[in-house]
């Protein structure tokens, strides 16, 4: 099975084909309030996590609030 090579928060990762943002977020234990995701510099609304599939070389950023400013 060919995996899909993505970069999540700067770390390379291979996920199964058709992996969605929602599945990735579950794998990261990040399905919780206060978290947001961008793929290739575009915000992916939480309501779209389930139908957004990751593609080869996608760059994923998963952010939450941290002390600062």
């Amino acid at each position: 099975m060919n995996g899909v090579a993505v970069v999540v928060n700067g770390e390379s990762r291979v996920v199964p084909p058709s992996t969605t943002v929602l599945v990735l977020m579950k794998d990261l234990g990040a399905v919780r309030d206060g978290v947001a995701v961008a793929v290739n510099d575009e915000l992916v609304l939480r309501s779209r996590w389930e139908d957004t599939k990751l593609r080869d070389r996608d760059q994923v950023e998963v952010l939450s609030a941290a002390p600062g400013g």
């Binding site: 990040a30 309030d33 998963v62 952010l63 939450s64 609030a65 941290a66 002390p67 600062g68 400013g69």
Partner: peptide
């Protein structure tokens, strides 16, 4: 109370947002 946005930290203990909201303040992202 301002907060920054950073990559999630799997080792973070406790929630910054809970502390802010629990204090009756509103988080202001930056």
């Amino acid at each position: 109370v301002t907060v920054a946005m950073r990559r999630i930290n799997p080792h973070a203990s406790g929630s910054l947002l809970d502390v802010i909201r629990g204090s009756g303040a509103t988080p202001l992202p930056n």
